[in-house]
Write a protein that binds this DNA or RNA. Structure first.
Length: 438
RNA sequence: GGCCCUAUCGUCUAACGGUUAGGACAGCGGGUUUUCAAUCCGUCAAUCUGGGUUCGAUUCCCAGUAGGGUCACCA
């Protein structure tokens, strides 16, 4: 049932044996982007022929992750649903002498004799064109008569893939570099069953900070964990696509659709890339900027503890975060507490550098007096700022006016500027805190 | 070890064989009407080594070195 059109069909074929990380999803992203760029079809195939290790929860996680990143697949199926088809080909190959059943002792040491299926290797050089690596030639002799099925009903990866790719009309296989050496095996099987040879693109792997292949063992996170940390799906898509690929221009921030438009396999790097978490934060920050004010406010509020959901805090928080999870962290670190409860004041800390105590005190008194002159409705950031700056500018050092206000209001040495704090606190609370500092 | 692939700033990368080797992240320095943040500006920083080919190599070829992948009755 191979498709007759020359439409491009790519696939993402993960095995549901664990929570997949960014490196694996990057190949999904490239496959998806390539298909969509060329008006093709993107297939998700769950490779669950390993019954022991495959788990439904992992399959669910893969689907959840793809959905979250808005990588829509046009077709979905599980490899295990095709065992009959696999069996048919296996039997045909055996009849034709292209494969044979071999009675061998099971490898588990049980001494049981099993009938496994081996491929009759013609022992030749296989050359294929890789869209990233170019022409690759490998001699298949040292592969021997490799095993293609545990038995007629349990096909193994290298064989099942060939049958499934053929059935699904896959035209382009875009996968990780770790599959490069599987390709000659698969091509040999294709020839044996009369399947067409496909177009291949093996993508160099993503390495961790330790320059080793990214893996869960070394802290690589599942994609859903990035979601849980409050990353934007488009930022992840953008950031991950930029590991080992670039559009050839200096533009770096791309939306989903722009990525589809710009993607090109020929600009995929040939060498492995080390994944840089900090740049991912930057990508996320840039994507937050693409959001509307309403969306930003909605998200920040959602990530704040219930008793702190005050929209006035949004601007302050926004410029201090790179992902939504940072909002939660800020709140948990107590950085926002002073907005809700008057801080404990250590009067020594009110003092700016070596300004005399009395001067600080009289400055605060002046400020209170000026603030009292402002009508409650006019107690805005702008007005507060003009009053305070007027005082600060005639002072010996601006800090002797500004610092005590910031400290009296926040109890912190480092905080957002005093104008915005005061405006959020409101006239009464601001004056009350200043009085306590006298 | 065999086989396959790769090699530009710390990291991700750009550069029809001719550029002061460009950008981004991080770092550092400074401006932005006090601090943190944000923002702006500036700055540090690279062609793995050795041979060729060429008037001229980051770019082409070879070797070395280094790194990655793979050598399952896993995928």
């Amino acid at each position: 049932m191979a498709e007759e059109s020359n439409k491009i069909v790519t696939r993402f074929a993960p095995s549901p044996t664990g929570l997949l990380h960014l490196g694996t999803y990057r190949t999904a992203i490239f496959s998806y982007l390539y298909a969509k760029k060329n008006g093709g079809t993107f297939v998700l195939r769950i490779e669950d022929t390993d019954k022991e290790r495959s788990k439904k929860e992992y399959e669910d996680n893969i689907i959840e992750s793809l959905n979250w990143m808005d990588l829509k697949y046009d077709k979905f199926y599980r490899q295990s649903e095709h065992v009959e088809e696999h069996k048919k080909h296996l039997e045909k190959m055996i009849t034709e002498g292209k494969a044979y059943i071999s009675k061998e002792e099971a490898k588990d040491g049980s001494g049981v004799i099993k009938e496994i299926v081996r491929f009759k290797n013609p022992n030749i050089d296989v050359t294929f064109n890789d869209d990233i690596k170019g022409s690759v030639t490998m001699n298949t002799t040292d592969l021997g008569d490799f095993v293609i099925a545990k038995n007629l009903n349990e096909p193994l990866y290298n064989f099942a893939v060939v049958v499934d790719d053929w059935n699904a009309g896959i035209t382009h296989v875009i996968r990780g570099e770790d599959h490069t050496s599987n390709t000659p095996r698969q091509i040999l099987i294709q020839r044996a069953i009369g399947a067409p040879t496909l177009s291949y693109a093996h993508i160099p792997l993503v390495l961790g900070g330790d320059k080793l292949k990214l893996s869960k063992r070394r802290g690589a996170l599942p994609i859903t964990e990035y979601r849980n940390q409050g990353f934007l799906p488009e930022a992840i898509l953008n950031g991950v696509a930029f590991v080992g690929w670039n559009p050839g221009t200096e533009k770096e921030i791309f939306t989903h659709d722009e990525l589809v438009e710009a993607f090109d396999l020929s600009r995929v790097q040939k060498s492995p890339a080390i994944f840089n978490e900090e740049k991912l934060n930057w990508f996320n920050k840039e994507h937050i900027k693409l959001l509307s004010k309403e969306e930003i406010e909605k998200n920040i509020l959602e990530w704040l503890p219930e008793n702190m959901q005050n929209a006035k805090l949004v601007p302050i928080i926004l410029e201090r975060i790179s992902k939504w999870g940072d909002v939660k962290d800020m709140a948990e670190r107590g950085e926002l507490d002073f907005f809700f409860n008057a801080p404990m004041i250590d009067k020594e800390k009110l003092i700016f550098k070596d300004t005399p105590k009395e001067k600080i005190k009289s400055n605060i008194e002046n400020i209170i007096k000026k603030f009292e002159e402002i009508a409650e409705n006019d107690f805005t950031e702008e007005n507060i700022k003009s009053v305070l700056m007027e005082l600060a500018n005639v002072a010996e050092k601006r800090g002797e006016v500004l610092h005590p206000v910031r400290y009296a209001l926040s109890g912190l040495d480092k905080s957002p500027d005093p104008f915005i704090i005061a405006s959020i606190l409101g006239k009464n609370e601001t004056i009350s805190r200043l009085q306590k500092a006298l």
